[in-house]
């Protein structure tokens, strides 16, 4: 079987995969990083979103071998090494941006990409960016509020740092 190697959350990993092994299968079953969820397996729901070379993608819709040599970040790589929540994660907690939590890893990964690309998004831009992430519990309002709060906090951190 072919070998695949990549850097996941800063750690070099490798393993044997088949041609048809999806990246999400390699992450969950190969590396036991089960924070990345599979909601639909048909590229619709966004529960499986991870970052590959800095871009958010649906890990159920890319083969593991296509990420050979890539830098991959999963939800497990978002918190600090001491377990402290990222600004986005903390905002989801504070603003109750989750209920069952199934969609949450994908939502946090997506929100993190959004704020990197667009540090001060409007409400409409946030909703537009969440187009590929489905939540069956919250009704989205609190997710949007959490992202707005995270944007504001990251913005004031940036001002403070200048």
């Amino acid at each position: 079987m072919p070998q695949v190697s990549m850097t996941v959350n800063g750690r070099k990993v490798s393993g044997e995969v088949e041609g048809r092994t999806l990246l999400v299968e390699f992450l969950r079953e190969g590396l036991r990083l089960t924070g990345t969820h599979v909601g639909c397996d048909t590229a619709q729901c966004g529960a499986c979103v991870v970052h590959v070379n800095g871009n958010s993608i649906k890990s159920c819709n890319i083969f593991a071998l296509e990420a050979d040599g890539a830098e991959v970040t999963t939800i497990e790589g978002i918190a600090g090494k001491d377990g402290s929540l990222s600004v986005v994660q903390a905002a989801f907690q504070t603003h109750h941006g989750l209920q069952c939590g199934y969609c949450t890893p994908g939502m946090v990964m997506t929100a993190t990409s959004l704020l990197k690309e667009n540090p001060a998004p409007s409400e409409a831009e946030i909703r537009e960016y969440l187009e590929g992430n489905i939540c069956r519990c919250t009704g989205y309002h609190n997710i949007v509020k959490a992202i707005q709060a995270a944007a504001a906090e990251l913005g004031s951190n940036r001002v403070a740092a200048e």
Binding site: N55, S56, I57, K58, N61, T110, Y129, E131, G132, N133
Partner: peptide, 9 residues
């Protein structure tokens, strides 16, 4: 087209 994740691939 689609959503940001689809557009990245």
């Amino acid at each position: 087209i689609g959503d940001p994740h689809v557009r990245n691939r």
